[in-house]
Design a protein around this nucleic acid. Structure first.
Lengths: 220, 220
DNA sequence: GCCCGCTTGTGACTGAGTGCACAAGGACGG
DNA sequence: CCGTCCTTGTGCACTCAGTCACAAGCGGGC
């Protein structure tokens, strides 16, 4: 489930407060979801809560870590070291351990050879070797949109099995490869769409801003 | 709908190729979704396709622009000018017009006053004035997790009506305010989860990497 | 002017996810 | 040792998005 990471984070925080046991209600509050959902999700992991008491924080943390594969090492390659790629490379706060930037790749001859956060930028032709030698299974695409598909194909060909795509483009991957996307422009457009629907302001290019009622929260 | 931006992008590409008319089938292919879904979504906008022919690209583009509010100006404030905030500030490729970085805010006295991409970093105390004067309605949170909620509260208090949260924390906002989140750690954890489920590699901290079958694509 | 083929728009079906509400069952106090 | 209280685990009903398949309708050829 996609909510497991939320529970994980909530549990980490709880553990930091030296709390040994947590109820589904409390966990739901911390994760921002429904309590019944928490219980169902956890029971789906064949979980062991204690009725009348709650869940043992440490034990549950361990179970979820295992389920999410956080006990492993996940080397990651970043392709495209522009603004975003560089920020990703420097971003040490992935929160969860195990995800480690293991290779930086860029097409631009200007950039190849430069160091970012202790890693050398390699040419894209080196991708297959890098993936194989460094046991990389996850790739991030931080390139311009028009080369995203090409880069994805090369990542897959090199043996990468999961891709996180930041480029604003539709990218398809073969069966057996996972792919998720993060698109800032789309997120912003969704926000503006809702704001407009709520009767929100935002200035017209030509004229004044209208205003009007119709509440419809979407906080989650 | 959250798919409108995808159609929008597909239509922009189509228009660039000087194509005047497009079928739902083709549009579905470009946006990476089902054709029936495209038709339903577009008909929901009270759309005007022509049976036997398809949709007029320019006309549809105009309709969707209006629906998404892309004909307006959407000034955006970024709070937290660390790695990510800086990258966001420098990122000119928001793709869709209208979204314009209008203010940079940070708590750190070291950073206040510095220029990033032509904008001066302001102290967080200036937030209410900035939001009011520059008609800002969208805020991005690029701070560490432990101040995310506090920053969100201040954004809301200042009058921001939509928030895009990059901090790995659960943030709640009052009814009437929209909030979406982008969390890299969660995305990575979801990918590793699926990869593990598929029987994927990824090295254990202690030992060798196993390997085994069970395909289960999740490409979209 | 009529017919044929192509594409839209939509009604019905399916399946997954969500939330409620309650029974099952352990812990703790007496 | 027993009863009570509290929290889990889950059966059930419901909603909603996704998908299929088909009728309606428009353009173009003859």
């Amino acid at each position: 489930m996609a909510r497991l990471p939320l529970y994980y984070r909530a549990l980490v925080e709880t553990a930091e407060h030296r709390i040994g046991t947590v109820s589904s209600e409390r966990l739901a509050e911390l994760a921002g979801v429904n309590a019944a959902k928490v219980r169902k999700d956890l029971s789906y992991l064949g979980s062991y809560g204690t009725r009348g008491v709650g869940y043992d924080v440490e034990f549950l943390l361990h179970q979820i870590s295992r389920e999410l594969g956080l006990t492993r090492d996940w080397p990651v390659a970043i392709v495209g070291i522009g603004n975003l790629g560089q920020a990703l490379a420097n971003y040490h706060g992935f929160g969860a351990r195990g995800f480690r930037i293991a290779a930086l790749v860029d097409d631009d001859a200007e950039k190849v050879g430069r160091d970012v956060d202790g890693l050398t930028i390699e040419p894209i032709s080196a991708l297959p070797d890098l993936v194989a030698e460094r046991h990389i299974t996850i790739g991030m695409i931080a390139t311009p949109a028009h080369v995203a598909q090409e880069v994805a194909d090369q990542l897959v060909a090199a043996g990468v099995r999961s891709i996180l795509n930041f480029a604003p483009a539709v990218v398809t991957v073969p069966e057996g490869v996972s792919m998720r996307k993060v698109d800032l422009a789309i997120e912003l457009q969704i926000l503006s769409f809702y704001q407009l629907r709520k009767g929100g302001s935002g200035r017209r290019h030509d004229a004044v801003d209208p205003n009007g009622g119709l509440r419809e929260g979407m906080a989650g």
